[in-house]
Design a protein around this nucleic acid. Sequence first.
DNA 1: TTAAAGTGAAACCAAATGGTTTCATGTTTT
DNA 2: AAAACATGAAACCATTTGGTTTCACTTTAA
Lengths: 110, 110
Amino acid sequence: MAASSVKHDVFQAIADPTRRKLLKLLSKEEMPVTAISGHFPISRTAVSKHLRVLADAGLVKERKVGRETRYKLEPEPLYELKDWLQYFELFWENKLTSLKLFVESDKQDI
Amino acid sequence: MAASSVKHDVFQAIADPTRRKLLKLLSKEEMPVTAISGHFPISRTAVSKHLRVLADAGLVKERKVGRETRYKLEPEPLYELKDWLQYFELFWENKLTSLKLFVESDKQDI
DNA sequence: TTAAAGTGAAACCAAATGGTTTCATGTTTT
DNA sequence: AAAACATGAAACCATTTGGTTTCACTTTAA
């Protein structure tokens, strides 16, 4: 329920390669913006905007500490992605015909 | 053979909600463009362009049959997404308790 | 109390994106 | 052979996106 405040969805947030790198970086440790932007060839402001997109999707959390703003990974929204993906796993299990038939039979009984 | 021929990557391909619906639709059966576009409020040409993006990412395969072009799901490229996601599962397991509560609150009759 | 550091907001820009309508081409059908 | 169907390519358009530079505001340090 609390996820209704997201302005950007997780699919769009991870579409950009820079944002995917940001997520990996922030998974290791909480970091302030200037330190983060040292890892990228773009301007600090550009990094800041990517962080905003990630925050809007709920994928990072920001915390003000003095004059710094520190960001860290917030992995929960990725669960939506996992759910979405799970549906397709049924199809790629290298053409397991029985499984496919099972699905097409509309889940008679589990 | 390698994925080097992809013009659009899978992350960008699934970022659009229309394309995600296309993938679900084409997972059920192979369909020609006109039939596909009947499921969407946009023009046939727009659907065709989305199909091109998905094909470039390797997510659908097209087959000419007479005057039709039929499309079907090709789920393999989603492996990359699964791999990417797997890294982050390490982190969201740390918050397993709260996550478990969240998930179960969504499934009322467990 | 100045100076410097850390950051976000604003204004701006080029390119990409998602959509449209029109047209050309190949394939059936009559 | 002519008409109808199925589709992709082209040209075009508005909006979004990813980037920049500049500016203002807080917070710390000299």
